[in-house]
Structures are given as structure tokens and as C-alpha cells.
Design a protein around this nucleic acid. Structure first.
Length: 498
RNA sequence: GGGCCUGUAACUCAGUGGUAGAGUAUCUGCCUUUUAAGCAGAGAGUCGAUGGUUCAAAUCCAUCCAGGCUCACCA
């Protein structure tokens, strides 16, 4: 009682009593004949036949009254009441029942019946302890009112929910649905791509050079080689090597790591799907993205619409496609199509947009887009044709040396996908990476580094290729109606506790 | 990093300068069809941490720690 340690002490005393009775509180084996949902599904028949069942689960409520008692047992399929009567289980077994704590795993051998108050229950003939609880589980009580679950003392502290996710899942069962949907989405992405003939691969997480995105990496050390390694920030450069290798359709789904700020939409490690398709371009990638997410919507929500934060999002094809320059013009009346640095800079200053020292016209245009357009893109929108300056791995748009064939997909004001017609000209690619390296020298810690092996691979020849990256965590947020990435990652990154 | 907010018992929360509270959980007793079981009683706290103001601090001030929202940053 007193502090938690005393409660734990009491539980350990009970444990000792159980041991003294010659009972193993942590037996190696259990024997279950029915899961709880099976009992529910066959209620009428089981009650009629007084069906003998053995259920296993966690004891999560107890109401004892003298020589009888009720409890609730949960497994992953449901929850059911147990009824324990001293006359039925016998003196010795009733003593064991009295030694049970909430949180214990138990095995109940008994028969199905209905209580006087009409509650479908298992009348215990024998109770077996499967695993003794030694730490008090926060108590959540619930009652169904008008078909809705009303809870008292809900386990709701956000920090605790994330730090002790096992308790969150145990005490807030609906959280599990988020992760079931997450698994479904990942399966659907995989099925979709496998069916289209994409080969799933694994490329290194530990890399001697990192690239494929603008981000600061995590650095680690290999003891035997006495070398620094980077945790990958993207899979791009390895997957393109596989396109060089003649694998025409390839994808990888896995964790990327970026050593950057954390907020509602960023976790240091996150799940990304990247795919590359030879003899394709960014238009093909748009079609694929559209179709993939449309199919996910049909699978997950059963329709081409979802409700996100009380607004309807429609995935009905085709989605809006608009160029970045046009969207800026629409929102602000400002025409940036000439890439006139002084003019654009003046407009940025007028609108109090911060100008980084090394930013050129392209970077400023992107800033304008982010400030004026991005938050307004609620329905799925492909924003196409990005400034070359901010896209070192994408191919130039024919007829406009300032632009590249690139798009990002925006839904509900957030970025969901990034894709381009991949740059396969090794000479141009070298120039672009060297320009990035210069930015690094000027202090841009997120700029790309020159990857000589990647450039060498391109020199062997890479076919025209379309590439696409999709943030899986954000997709899950969208389809589970969450606004924080921490809600869709089981164990989100938290500051260590002191 | 800035602004705003939060941190009190295992859980959910009251408590704005004067002896730390409630419900649930826990423990004891009663109770043979309960279900947020009930009734009676008991125990339970470094009031996030440190320093300061004061006769007196959970309460006021400062710093720090952790978290949330938001802005910035991170395309």
C-alpha cells in the first residue's frame, strides 16, 4: 500500500503464499480450448449445452462477495465475465481465487451460463494462475451508456501513453486499431507493388556516405573497421544503382533516420517507401501514386472518401495537378516564372519571408510556395515542376532550364510524396552534386555530399527512370485521423527520462 | 529556439500564503448472481527539481527538468 513499492511488496507476499501452497505462479504451459470471441459467437448454443470451455486471459476486474465472486477476463478477442462460487470450485481453489490480483493472467476451466442479471459468463470449475502480476496496473473502469463506452480514470496522460505504450494498448484498446490499420496500409502498399511487378529489396541502413535527401544524418561507429557510418537518410542512391543493374521495377519500405527537429509530423526515425521504375517518368509516378492511395482508401475506409479532422477528403481520380509557379500566382498574384532573383527577393522581403544567405531564386520560390500555398492544399494535389536549385537529383524540364520534372503530393496541408523523373546524365548529376558540396562548404549542413560510387554507376548507364517516395507514417495519420506522428508510431522518440 | 499551457497518491483530478484533499485502486471486515457491485474502516504523497521571498510556500519569484499546443527551423 503506501508507496508503490509497498504495493509491490504485498503482491510479492501473495506470490510467496501461492508458492507456499505448492503452486507455480508462472507455469510453463497453458491450455486454452476457446477464445472469448468464440464464446460470444456461439452464446445461445453454448449456454443451452452448458458448454465446457477453458479460457485464458488477463483478469481486469473483480467483484468479490463473500463466498462468491465475479471477475472479468480479457484476451485479444474480447472480454467475458467469470463467476466463481466456493461450493463449485472447492475450498482450496477458492483460496487461490482470493489471492488473485487485477492484472494476473489466469486460466478458467468451466461452463457457459447466464447469471440472474442476464450476463453471459463462465462458471469456473477450476482456476489456474498463469502469470502473477507484481505491479499495479492503473485502473480504468468503464460502462456502456447508450451503446458508447464511458470511462472513468482513463489512462490519458500523453507522455505516459507514449513512454509506457504497453499500458496504453492495454488500457485504451482502441489504440490497437491504429496499428492494425498501419499494418493493413503497409500490406496494401506491398501487395500493390508486388502485383505490379516491383521487386522488394533491402539496402544498407549503415552507409559510409549518405544521400538522396537534404537532411543531417545520425553518425555511428564501426569498431572492427574503425570507421564512421551514417544511418541512411534515404534509400534513393542504392535503389538507383539497382536500376543501373537492370532491375526495372524496384522498391524498398523501411526506416530512414534524420537528425533534425521533432514535431507533430517528424520523428527521427520514420518509415519511407521508395520505388524506382525504368522507362517511366514523373507523370507515370503521378498515375501510380494516385492509384495506390485510391486503392488504399478503398481497402481501409471502404470508399474513395475519408473524413480527416472533420473535413472530407476525396481520392476520386484524377487529382488536381498544378505547377508550383502557377499556384503561387493564383494565391498571391505574383509571377515568379522568370526566376528574376532581385524581383523575387523584393517580393519576399515585402511579405517578411526570411531569406537565407545562399538562397537563389529557386529556393525563394519554394519558400513562397510553402508560405502561401502549401497550407491551403487540403484536397489531394500534385504540385509539379520544382525549381532545379532545390532538386539536385531530378531531371531538367525540357524547355525550361530553371525547372525540373518533380512533384510533391499534398493532402490536408501536409507533404505525402515526392517524386521525379530521375536525373540519369552522370555529367549533369556531378555538376549538381558539386554545387551541393559548395553549399555545404558555405555551411548548409543539409546539402548533399558527392557520392563517387553513385556517379560511377550512372556512368555505366541508367535508363530513363521515374522515382517516388511516400511517407508511410503520414499515410497512416491520414487514414487513422491522427494529427501527431507519435500516435502512429508504437514507440515514438522521447527525451530520456532523468 | 520563441510564445502560451501543464506537472499534487498507482490512475483521474480538486486545492491561489496558514496542519496536503476527493473518487477509483490497495489493505482489513461484512456480504452466495454482481457488473463503475455495495457498506464500514485503514493505509497511502520529496505537491517535477533546485534556489529565493516570507513567521509560514503545493500556492509568490527565479532557474532547471519533462510534456502538450503553437510559431520558427527541418523542402
Amino acid at each position: 500500500m503506501q508507496p508503490e513499492s509497498q504495493v509491490i511488496g504485498l503482491k510479492k507476499q501473495k506470490l510467496q503464499k501461492i508458492i507456499d501452497l505448492g503452486i507455480n505462479p508462472f507455469p510453463n504451459r497453458s491450455k486454452r480450448t476457446h477464445k472469448i470471441n468464440i464464446l460470444r459467437e456461439n452464446q445461445d448454443e453454448f449456454v443451452k449445452q452448458k458448454q465446457k470451455v477453458t479460457i485464458c486471459g488477463r483478469l481486469d476486474a473483480m467483484r468479490r462477495q463473500g463466498r462468491i465472486g465475479f471477475g472479468n477476463v480479457s484476451d485479444d478477442s474480447g472480454r467475458i465475465q467469470i463467476f466463481v462460487k466456493k461450493d463449485v470450485v472447492g475450498e482450496e481453489n477458492y483460496e487461490i481465487f482470493k489471492l488473485l490480483d487485477l492484472g494476473d493472467f489466469v486460466q478458467i476451466e468451466g461452463e457457459c451460463f447466464v447469471t440472474q442479471k442476464g450476463e453471459y459468463s463462465v462458471k469456473a470449475h477450476k482456476i489456474t494462475i498463469l502469470s502473477k502480476n507484481l505491479r499495479p496496473i492503473p485502473t480504468v473502469k468503464e460502462k456502456i451508456v447508450d451503446g458508447k463506452i464511458k470511462r472513468w480514470d482513463e489512462f490519458s496522460d500523453i507522455e505516459l501513453r507514449y513512454r509506457k505504450r504497453y499500458l496504453d494498448l492495454l488500457l485504451n484498446p482502441e489504440i490497437k486499431k491504429t496499428f492494425e490499420i498501419r499494418a493493413k496500409i503497409i500490406n496494401e502498399v506491398r501487395n500493390y507493388l508486388d502485383n505490379k511487378g516491383f521487386l522488394e529489396v533491402d539496402t544498407p541502413v549503415l552507409q559510409t556516405l549518405y544521400g538522396g535527401a537534404n537532411a543531417r544524418p545520425f553518425i555511428t561507429h564501426h569498431n572492427t573497421l574503425d570507421t564512421s557510418f551514417y544511418l541512411r537518410i534515404a534509400t534513393e542512391l542504392y535503389l538507383k544503382r539497382l536500376i543501373v543493374a537492370g532491375i526495372e521495377k524496384v522498391y524498398e519500405m523501411g526506416k530512414d533516420f534524420r537528425n533534425e527537429g521533432m514535431d507533430r509530423t517528424h520523428n527521427p526515425e520514420f518509415t519511407m517507401m521508395e520505388l524506382y521504375q525504368a522507362f517511366a517518368d514523373y507523370f507515370d509516378m503521378m498515375d501510380l501514386t494516385e492509384d495506390l492511395i485510391y486503392e488504399i482508401s478503398k481497402k481501409i475506409s471502404g470508399s474513395e472518401n475519408i473524413i480527416y479532422q472533420e473535413q472530407e477528403i476525396s481520392f476520386k481520380k484524377p487529382w488536381k495537378r498544378a505547377s508550383m509557379i502557377d499556384l503561387i500566382l493564383e494565391e498571391t498574384g505574383f509571377d515568379a516564372s522568370d526566376f528574376d532573383y532581385e524581383k523575387i527577393k523584393k517580393f519576399c522581403k515585402k511579405n517578411e519571408i526570411e531569406i537565407e544567405p545562399n538562397a537563389g531564386a529557386g529556393k525563394l520560390i519554394e519558400e513562397l510556395f510553402e508560405v502561401f500555398v502549401e497550407p491551403k492544399l487540403f484536397q489531394p494535389t500534385f504540385v509539379i515542376d520544382y525549381p532545379k536549385e532545390v532538386s539536385p537529383l531530378a531531371k531538367t524540364k525540357p524547355g525550361n532550364p530553371n525547372l525540373v520534372e518533380r512533384f510533391e503530393l499534398f493532402i490536408a496541408g501536409n507533404e505525402f510524396a515526392n517524386a521525379f523523373t530521375e536525373l540519369n546524365d552522370p555529367i549533369d548529376q556531378r555538376k549538381r552534386l558539386e554545387a551541393q558540396a559548395k553549399l555545404r562548404e558555405l555551411g548548409d549542413l543539409e546539402a548533399n555530399v558527392v557520392d563517387e560510387d553513385f556517379l560511377e554507376a550512372l556512368e555505366y548507364g541508367m535508363p530513363p527512370t521515374g522515382g517516388l517516395g511516400v511517407g508511410i507514417d503520414r499515410l497512416v495519420m491520414l487514414f487513422t485521423n491522427n494529427t501527431s506522428i507519435k500516435e502512429v508510431i508504437l514507440f515514438p522518440q522521447m527525451r530520456p527520462e532523468i
